[in-house]
Every structure is written in structure tokens, then in C-alpha cells.
Nucleic acid binder design. Structure first.
Lengths: 246, 246
DNA sequence: GCGAAACGTACATATATGTGAATTTATCTG
DNA sequence: CAGATAAATTCACATATATGTACGTTTCGC
């Protein structure tokens, strides 16, 4: 069950992140199609807790910097090593495509760092974006770091839906693709989940964290280059990853 | 009316900001005394929206860096000029007390930037903290920037409650204190709202924003020094504020 | 300076939602 | 490795909650 008012808090924040200016109760209510009275209650709650304020007289509400302090506090914990962000920056610059770091979250894979392509047609991914772990290059690069037992447990929870023509829709299909990936030396996906999207991914264990790097873009552009891109990812990891620590 | 589940989202974030480590469903449920099932729904909602993930197998939930991207996006808008933070850093260092920037929000005043004192006994303020605009030095420094008409409108919404012995509990009392502040050259408060707390504040208009600076601490320590502190604030503003722009 | 439109606020009520109990799944212990 | 223990899910129902309606307040156009 989805908790509506919890989701609404996030929607409001995303709204402000887009609008980048204060908004009145009426504007917000109209934007979301919420009743004024409900919107009033929500905004009052967020204000009372110190997360929204009214910067100007009758100028509407805007988030306080408290969001930033909170977000900084939680992000200070186990930050990604700087070379990891450098890695995807470089990969994105070299390939012209979107490069990301991905982490597991149950049956999903979550983007935890992203450098977007500058091309007008590009893979539009954001931090927090989620995709099925079994139906994506980056997800399978995570699965490669699981033991067979752990994978079997996961498989039980996965709903195998045919998102696209090449989506693996059975445990065996996924396992077969994992074997192929090992043989090939990298993971790939051609529209497994998102139409017209192709990508190459490589596992990236950091400490006890199981992550992966992925470079993805429109199939027509990146498709033929997937092996080269994969090789580039591997080379770049090799060069940037500190040799000392495990 | 307070929107419970909206508040709960914030509580969860504050919990993670404190704990600084992943937490399982059970831990969170126990911590807040929430039923497991409700906690499950909330965590599922936040996860589905990409704001929580499970970094390790059965290692519990943790916020994704998405909070940080969002918070950065909203905070990019009209950031405080760097000299403003330098101002309160310096004031806090010189006085040994907590120094803050405050903005109006209806009948309340909100802390939008804070540099805390290092003293063991200190004014514990955080960004987002709210105090009544009429019953605080910093709040009255905001009111000084309002026209009489604007103040009168505000007064109608204020509940005049005797928080402490010196709380102004009538419109006339507030107006009198404002006149005193003008004569004195700064605003002060001795336990108007928080017991044992004293402070000095000065208006700080920036562009069309009405802000104020306040230095506050325990009455026994800062009390006798309030005039000196006020003078220091004024001098420091004078020194740091760029002369060019209005 | 007046009237009208827009905005913000309060409250009672029907209903969407949170919850306790039951079930399933995973982990620990001897 | 099995049995016990703890955690994570599911679900039907009572109730806390979102909302329609009405009212007061502020702004804007003329």
C-alpha cells in the first residue's frame, strides 16, 4: 500500500526543485489538483516542522535550508570515494553518453550517482531512479556479485514481466545471461527494460558494497559500440581505482 | 490539522540523519513505536519513490543521495551571499555564542543559517528552528523592517501567550519594545520566549529579503554583554557587507 | 474607494487509510 | 540440519483523516 501523504511530501519537494521559486497554496493545489483544504494542511505541517517557510509577505512557501542540512548529514555516511565520481565523469565525457553508479535495493537497482550525457537525445536518468535488477545491464552486474543462494532468494520475489522483446522472463534466462556476461567480460542490455535503450555495465565492488558502473544511451547510437564502451569502462576503472586497498 | 504521515517522513529522515547508518524496518518501528505494518507501508512508499534503498543484503534501509540532489536544487535559488555566513561564523567565534540568520514566516521567525557556539552550555539552535516573531530579538529585528500596516495585519494573527516573565503580551507592548529597539540601535530579548536565553539582534535586509542577524546564549553569560555584542554585530556587518549594491 | 474575485482558513462528515492479527519468510541456535 | 525465534508481508476492518462546503480576509481592477 502506498502512503499517499508521504508521497505528497516528496512530490512537493520535487515541485520546488523544478520551479525554483516560492509557490502559493493555490498554485500548489492547482498544480497537483489537490483540494485547497488538504494542501493547506500539508503545507502547515511542513511549515510547523521547519521545512517550509514564507520568505516574503504573501509570496508563497519555499523549502528552508533544513533539507540541505539533513541531506548532507545522511550523505556524509560512507560517501562514494571521489575517484568513483571521476570515473563516471570521464566515461560520460569520452563516450558522450550517460554514465552511472548503481546499487541494489531488493529486486530493484537504484542509481546512486549519475553524470548525464550532453547529447540532445540521451538516456535521462536521475539519482534515485530504479530499474528491475534482472532486466538491466547494471542490475545484472550487481547480480554477478551475489552467491547462487542469494540470487535464488531474489528470484522468488521477482515478477518476470516482458518489458521488451529481449527481457529475460525466467530464472533460467537470467542465469544464462549472467553466464554469457561472465564469458563476455561485461554485462549488456538491449532494451531489456526501456525501449530503444542499450548499455554496458561492469561490477564495481567497493569495500563491502556491491555496486556497478553502467554507460547507457539510445540503441541506435551506442548499440554497435557496446563492446568498445565496455572495454573503455574496464580500462578506466583499472586506471582510476587505487591499487592499495582491497 | 497536522498530516501525520507527512510528519512521519520528516521524522524518518531526521532519524537517519542522527543514526548515520542503515536501519531495518523493525528498528525504525520500535524506535518510533509505530506498528510494523504501518512502518512497512511508509518505507515501501519512500523506496518506490527512490528516496530509500537497501545498500546491503538484509542490512536495512538508508536514504539515497536523491535527497541531496533535491536539497541542492532548491537551495541553489537565492543562496545567501557568502559574506553572510562569514558574518555569523565570525560573530560566533568572537563571542563564543551561537550566531544565526533569521527570516520571517508568517507569525514565526525561522532560522535559515546557524553557526553554533562551541561552549558546553549553549543556545542549541538548528536551521529550520522556529520562534514567535514578536517574542524574540531576531523576530523583532524583522518586524522593524515591516510597515506599520504590515505589522498590524500580523498582530491580528498572533496569539499573545506569556512564554516567560518578559514576553510582550499585547500589541502595545510589542510596539513599545520596537520603539525602544530603534532608540537603542538594536533588538534584545531576555527570556522572552525561551527561559534563561538572552540575545541581541540587528536587521539585515538583503535585496528585497528581510532578514536579521542574532547572537544568543545563556542569560548569565551573555546578559551583561548584550550592548557590546550588539555593537560588535553592527561593526562586523559594516565591515563585511559589500558597499556597492544596495 | 468600492465591488468582485481570489486566496486562505475552519469544521463536520464520509471514506480512504492505518493497524492488529495472521501468515509467510528468513535467521539463529544447539 | 531441524526446530525455534525473529523479521517481513498480507489483509480485512474500525477509525483517524482528507475533503466539500462555507466563511473571513486580502488583493486587484476600475
Amino acid at each position: 500500500m502506498i502512503v499517499r501523504q508521504a508521497a505528497n511530501v516528496l512530490e512537493i519537494m520535487e515541485y520546488f526543485a523544478q520551479a525554483k521559486k516560492p509557490a502559493t497554496l493555490a498554485e500548489i493545489a492547482d498544480h497537483f489538483g489537490w483540494p485547497r483544504s488538504s494542501t493547506f494542511n500539508l503545507l502547515a505541517t511542513l511549515s510547523e516542522k521547519g521545512y517550509l517557510y514564507e520568505p516574503r509577505r504573501r509570496g508563497g512557501y519555499y523549502p528552508t535550508p533544513r533539507w540541505l542540512t539533513l541531506a548532507r548529514m545522511v550523505s556524509e555516511v560512507e560517501p562514494l570515494p571521489p575517484w568513483v565520481h571521476a570515473l563516471i565523469s570521464e566515461l560520460s565525457a569520452e563516450t558522450g553518453e550517460t554514465a552511472s553508479i548503481v546499487a541494489p535495493s531488493g529486486v530493484m537497482a537504484v542509481f546512486i550517482d549519475v553524470v548525464e550525457s550532453q547529447a540532445p537525445i540521451r538516456y535521462f536518468a536521475t539519482i534515485g531512479h530504479r530499474i528491475p535488477i534482472h532486466a538491466s545491464a547494471s542490475g545484472r552486474a550487481l547480480l554477478l556479485q551475489y552467491s547462487k543462494e542469494e540470487r535464488d532468494q531474489l528470484y522468488r520475489k521477482i515478477e518476470f514481466r516482458p518489458y521488451g522483446a529481449s527481457t529475460p522472463i525466467s530464472i533460467e534466462a537470467v542465469e544464462a545471461e549472467l553466464r554469457n556476461s561472465i564469458a563476455r567480460g561485461y554485462c549488456q542490455s538491449f532494451g531489456d527494460y526501456s525501449r530503444d535503450l542499450a548499455g554496458a555495465a561492469i561490477p564495481l565492488p567497493i569495500g563491502d558494497r556491491r555496486l556497478s558502473v553502467v554507460v547507457a544511451g539510445p540503441e541506435f547510437r551506442i548499440g554497435p559500440k557496446v563492446p568498445d564502451v565496455a572495454a573503455l569502462i574496464a580500462r578506466t576503472i583499472d586506471r582510476l581505482r587505487p591499487k592499495t586497498a582491497a
